[in-house]
Write a protein that binds this DNA or RNA. Structure first.
Lengths: 195, 195, 195, 195
DNA sequence: TATGAATGAGTCTTCATTCAT
DNA sequence: AATGAATGAAGACTCATTCAT
């Protein structure tokens, strides 16, 4: 595949992402992609043989873009609390977003397709996030910001809560205040002053 | 609709439930139902005009069966801790179940269909559960079993965690030990001895 | 068939008439009739084996009701001109009616079903009307009201014009003024004073 | 759509025309068209999304072919009488045709679909014909061939008669002699010598 | 590489008709 | 006579996929 083709492939992936964001995973047809991209049916098949393959590439591209769970800017002298707050704020934003998130499509995809554990992007991302959070909590404990006996479990707990918020937001709707309350609850479980 | 028809309708709902359990929501066609039930195409339409309507009835039937989140047996002299443990154990069982659960289908349905808040079964069930948990925690605090400053937030937190476990289990797979660890984490946050 | 059955049959025919008036002939299903009559599917088949048979009975009932083309009241001392005007006025009313007329359904039926000439109700009615008109014109000529060299051809011409107005009204829409103009044209061709 | 596709589209329209001629409008299914054309179901939908759309194109193609009501040959030195005779002869031919005419299908279509007046092809064609006839009659009056006080009303009258003949022919059947008699009646109402 | 016409399998939905009660 | 549940054939429509150009 030449350079030009690579560009086209990337273009398709980016365009397809929007389609998946808007329609989820299962409802997207090859025609939807073709129409959105303005290319021919045959043309699409030169690059992707199914929506499943295309979706996997969308997810991978997604990963490359934010290889860090902190897409926000973090100042040099930020405390652990600062960083955690930034992280939770970003998660909150994404959780409350009705559209423009690939979340629902990803759930739909992984409900139907169970890749081997090591190939499961959602799982990798989850574990990665747990790890980073764990490090952050340990740092906070170290410098006296946080109180936490089991940083790993706490990190995992936070991730499960976030996943719960995410899915609840998409299935039953969540008000901002309800999300705030939950995130506050998480923070209060960690910071020293509250005790 | 006579008595006989009512039976048939119930039979269809029960049979359809299995189909939804096996295939999720979106992949299920009227033909799948027809085949599973061994009835004619036209016959099914006498009772349900779409898979959506049928699925709603499946969910409602589901609700009627367990109108209480504690389907397990609870002894008269059970402590709050006992009851909470029973509840979490049942949740764990359901979370780890690969199949035989309508969970995935329900998620798929509610991703695609957003009923008004008061009609949203998932939401109703969630809030109901929060309420019951809250009562349980308050009772535990009362008699000195639990330590909890904000029972409602804690109850809600537990429910979000469970929802997170549920969706993670279905999308990335969860080992029993990981679930156990998380549930233990929840319990430890509540019981007195841990402090 | 007992007396009671005859009543029910008549009830079905009358109810079905309304359905045909509203939906034309081809779009009417047995279910439409069943619903309109509030009877059972099987029940309808006891009396009529198809919409075609039912429609024929509707037409026949129609005929019995107005066995005369002059459904309006005609005073004893009416002149030929008076009678002709009454007739044309009634025709005009029917022609301009958007609904409540069986016309379209009848056209649809006879487009698809060509009964033998003697069984063709539309034809019988047409010829009958020509005959009556012819007699009327002859009477008018007799007493000097009309000028007409060939009453039969004139009668037939009038009927063709009315049929043309009818079908044009239903396919392309006709304004009242256009109908008036045409009917006036017909009258002027007959009455003496105009020459 | 490329040149080739345009040909195929035209082929479908022409083939469909025959189907509509044979079965009328309402009884024609997409399958009928597909079978007649020897193409696939999906293929047809590439060009037309319904029988209604297809039928409209058939009508439009019909119009393009004979954009003049005089499809017959008219010699240079023809009199108004000649031309009118040619016109009526063609009309007669079409009226008496049992098949090969799109008439019935058009009636069925316009019974069920009432386009805005300016979009109603039947109406446009009717008014156009009235206009041409009016011009012809005026020319005939000018040179002494015809006697007519109101050429427009007369033209309209002729068109209503023709429409009446057309619909009667298709619903009750008309003998050639009956049509001849009516057309003769029309001519006699115009030409000078008869008075 | 790229196109887009073409295919045909699959699903949805409606309807006339039957038949056990 | 009357009911209405049940059937299955038939038509509408969509979609993944192929293939000649």
């Amino acid at each position: 595949m030449g350079e030009k083709s690579a560009h086209k492939k990337q273009f398709i992936v980016e365009t397809a992402r929007q389609v998946f964001v808007e329609k989820g995973y299962k409802d997207v047809t090859m025609k939807d992609i073709v129409d959105a991209c303005g290319i021919s049916r045959g043309g699409l098949y030169l690059y992707f043989e199914s929506t499943a393959e295309l979706f996997r590439e969308v997810l991978e591209a997604e990963q490359k873009e934010k290889d860090d769970i902190f897409s926000g800017e973090i100042p040099e002298d930020a405390t652990a609390t600062d960083i955690l707050l930034v992280f939770l704020k970003e998660q909150k934003k994404e959780i409350l977003l009705k559209k423009n998130s690939i979340t629902v499509a990803a759930y739909e995809y992984f409900f139907a397709n169970k890749p081997a554990k090591k190939d499961n992007l959602l799982r990798r991302k989850f574990l990665e996030s747990v790890d980073i959070l764990k490090g952050l909590i340990e740092a906070g404990v170290e410098n006296g910001e946080f109180v936490c006996e089991d940083p790993e479990s706490t990190a995992q707990d936070i991730m499960f809560v976030l996943e719960g918020l995410r899915v609840c937001s998409q299935t039953m709707g969540l008000s901002e205040s309800r999300v705030d309350r939950e995130l506050l609850y998480i923070m209060e479980g960690l910071v020293y002053e509250d005790l």
